Simulated scan of single mutants.
Amino acid sequence: MRIIYASYNPFTPEVRVGAHYYSSLMAKEGHDVLYLAGPDFIFHQIDARKHVREGCRETQRIKRMGPVRLEEGPVQYLPDSLIPTLRSLPIVSRLWPFNSSWAALLAAKATWPPVKTVARNFGFSEPDLLWIENVRYLYLADTLKPARMVQRVHDMTLASPAERSIRELFVEAMRRSSVVFCMSKSLIDDYVARLSGDPRKVHYLPNGVSSEWFKVPDSLPEPPDLAPLPRPRVIMVGVYEFWVDYQKLWRLADMLPDVSFVMVGPVRVALPDGKPPNVYFLGKRSHQVIPAYLRNSDVGLSIFTRTAFTEYVNLIKLYEYLAMGLPAVSTAHRELSLTEAPWLLADSPEDFARAIRQSLELGDKDRQAFVEFARANTWEKRFEIVKEVIGL
């Protein structure tokens, strides 16, 4: 089967999201997969924002490679766009035409080389399936004439202020898709079931964890930058953006001065003043080395702000913490409270401190239970659901 998988995130050493796992599993099953990332605004490399310019180094490397078959199986293509998206120009995010679905669609159409040309050159004219997550690529449903379209709705997209310009495209994609997968129960209740046009075609498909995590040795050497940090260690892995509650993290660290708070991942905002000395930002790391950081930590953390944007999150990092036998402590987002999982939820710094202290007292039996929960919630098991629902 020829599948076009239209998503956002390119395959990089640091980031692995659901789109990477699903497209790789499709290729592993013998399907021919064209993985579309982006599009990326061509002038991001001269953006005034430092984190955008730094991110361009990796995307430029990917774009220079052109369409290329990855070790994971899919052919990846990350095109340049000549038109900025709402994310590209936050300063004009409320101004027409940048806040319109027309502009969002144009950003995906105005690519070089054109996506439809690349798709045709690789034999993806009239594909069997268009799997759409990035609805900027919705125009491919008309230009390439797929036999079928399936949509996967992310946990925060419909509520995200950055996605306001493409909400109409989300609705159109849901109505045109024969099946809609959504990773958030609360997002289904609030938006997807109603906007899809037919709730019967909507299926709950939460995030998960790769089965590769269960092959990680029980003991790994401490990474050199982690070794000097005293235990106990509370670790958070991810991208440090506006959704992280830094003030709450500072207060929490002040309350637990004997705990090292280890932050792994790229920082894409200016950190507020007052960072306690026991909070350590180590920077971005390859996804392949993250297990060594988790194996040598004591508690996994997610501490986000609570907004309409974050209440729908179903966090991959929590499943990965549990797969490593780590207790997981997270902000009590609505979606996480609806999931029957062994993570601990908290709101105030005092709640977080109690949950962390409680987690540090857990024994091997509890930690093994975390691993078994994660083992029952792998991407591979999620993919079996996909295959059953769409007959893949």
Score class of each variant (00 low, 15 high):
E54P: 00
A193Y: 08
T12Q: 08
A308P: 00
T331A: 07
N296Q: 00
I188V: 13
S211T: 12
I385G: 05
Q45N: 12
F43P: 04
S186G: 00
N278Y: 02
H31T: 13
F214A: 03
D189N: 12
M26V: 03
A346L: 10
L326Y: 00
R295Q: 07
F41W: 15
R2M: 04
F309N: 14
L25K: 02
R61I: 11
A341P: 10
A107P: 04
S210R: 04
D80F: 15
A369V: 00
R354M: 05
P230D: 05
T305C: 05
L158K: 00
R194L: 05
H44Y: 07
G123K: 11
R136C: 07
F261R: 05
E350G: 07
S211K: 12
L130N: 09
M1W: 03
E212Y: 02
G300C: 09
K116Q: 14
R306F: 07
P291V: 07
D225Q: 10
G208Q: 05
F122N: 08
P206Y: 04
K317G: 08
V153H: 04
Y204L: 12
P277E: 14
M149D: 05
E388K: 15
D142K: 14
A332V: 09
I385T: 15
V171I: 15
A141S: 15
G363P: 06
H203T: 10
S165Q: 09
F242I: 06
D258K: 13
F41T: 09
V239N: 13
P257D: 05
G123M: 06
V279R: 07
T305K: 15
K215H: 07
A108C: 15
D155G: 00
P84K: 01
F124V: 11
A27P: 08
L144D: 11
P90T: 11
E14S: 13
T111K: 09
L252C: 04
A341N: 11
F281P: 02
V52F: 03
E320A: 04
V118R: 12
P79L: 09
I3G: 06
E335P: 01
P13F: 14
P90G: 10
M149V: 15
M65F: 01
A355S: 14
H154V: 00
R176N: 04
R231D: 08
L318C: 13
L256C: 05
K28L: 14
Y204C: 03
A104L: 08
N314I: 00
Q60H: 12
F98Y: 13
P113W: 14
I390F: 07
C182L: 05
N99L: 06
L106F: 14
K63D: 02
G55A: 09
P223C: 08
P199E: 08
E361H: 13
L70A: 02
I166E: 14
A141W: 10
I390P: 10
V75T: 15
S101D: 13
I3S: 05
G30Y: 11
G274M: 02
T12W: 06
D273G: 08
D298L: 07
R175V: 03
L158V: 12
I3A: 12
F370H: 06
I188Q: 13
I316R: 10
S297D: 05
V267L: 03
P277M: 00
V244P: 00
M183N: 12
L315C: 07
V264P: 06
Q358Y: 11
I385Y: 03
V264N: 09
A346N: 05
W343T: 09
Y22M: 15
P342W: 02
V237C: 02
D198I: 03
K284R: 14
E320M: 04
A253G: 10
